[in-house]
Design a protein around this nucleic acid. Structure first.
Lengths: 195, 195
DNA sequence: ATGTTACCGTAACGCCTGTTACGAATGGAG
DNA sequence: CTCCATTCGTAACAGGCGTTACGGTAACAT
């Protein structure tokens, strides 16, 4: 038992290490040795958990997908109305605090690393399409009278806006405070008749 | 004269090489040797033009800034109304064709490379702030009756949306055809009362 | 024509990278 | 207690990287 507990604990420590290196030092310094140093272990352990370096990136992206999925599902369940759910889900996609800012950096880092890598870009597309469908579903629930095309167009505008906002704020948090981001989101939802 | 002509021609060839390597092969493969190979020269020439590798990234970003600035200034000058100018300028910020798609990839690549690099991130912020101010100015011209705060909020929503759209489309052009991007932009402009 | 200067290709250096192979240690099974 | 399997650290490898130094060459000035 202590064996498997240690193993899963090591797994989490390693995940955090991959995450933090990618978020704090960037894609180019995401090396096996840097991850090992951040996790407080050696390269041997890292290479035992991951077949190669690309798997580090892939793991970071899958972790991002899992974390955001769990968070938005919680937010969805706790929301009083479909419109509140939509707003809460979109809100967490921006870079409002250090945690979400790091998530945005990881998103960008993976995207940059996935250029010219079919397998990684496929993962990216899969996750983005799932995200898009989720927001379309929430939008449709918020305004059932809208046509499918209207839903798709507005949902696209919303995910593009929040993702772009996350990218901007990730690189320049001082210029894009959380209050401004929220004001922008509310202005958009109001303009589309979603508030 | 032939000397300086050759020199500037070499400069352009080198710029194109940096650009294409970053856009097609990604940040991690943006090496001095790859750029030299793409430019059809040797590493010696590259290192004579650029002090170090970071300068390659910086050059790509500055080139992106210059290209987009010239393009939007042309569009602005040719636009019949302030609203048309705003739309045209925002439109070119998305990834509508192969050219703009590559620009989006370069934008992402530089951003990912600028993490943990103060000098590069400073350049990124400078350019982004100039872009933001331009769109704010165009927005204010389109609706003079708006307050400065309203202008800032809507302009932020617009640049975030187009930048996010560019990032999405850069990674998955098939899922985000140009027509969908334009429809999204028009829907947003309509919703904000800008069309 | 000759000296000078700027330009750029060649080749090498040291470093860091991903990856592999092997040995030590650890924990469970008989 | 012994054996075995698994886990992980150590150390090394080959290769690619950024960067530097040097030599040759081509253009300009005198």
């Amino acid at each position: 038992m202590s064996r498997t507990a240690d193993r899963s604990a090591q797994g989490e420590a390693l995940s955090r290490a991959v995450w933090s290196v990618l978020a704090e030092q960037g894609l180019e310094r995401l090396t096996v040795r840097a991850v090992a140093a951040a996790a407080g272990c050696t390269t041997g352990l890292v290479m035992h958990r991951f077949p190669n370096r690309r798997a580090l990136l892939l793991h970071a992206r899958q972790l991002l997908h899992r974390v955001t999925r769990e968070r938005v599902e919680t937010l969805e369940a706790a929301a009083a109305t479909p419109r509140a759910a939509l707003r809460a889900v979109l809100r967490q996609g921006m870079a409002l605090d250090e945690r979400t800012r790091q998530e945005a950096v990881v998103w960008i880092g993976f995207l940059a690393g996935a250029v010219a890598d079919d397998e990684l870009i496929a993962e990216h597309r899969r996750n983005n399409r799932a995200w898009r469908e989720r927001v379309e579903r929430l939008t449709a629930a918020a305004v059932p009278e809208w046509s499918a095309e209207r839903v798709a167009t507005v949902a696209l505008a919303l995910i593009a806006m929040t993702e772009g906002m996350a990218a901007y704020a990730a690189a320049d948090p001082g210029a894009f405070p959380a209050a401004d981001q929220e004001r922008m989101l509310d202005a958009a939802l109001t303009a589309y008749g979603l508030m």
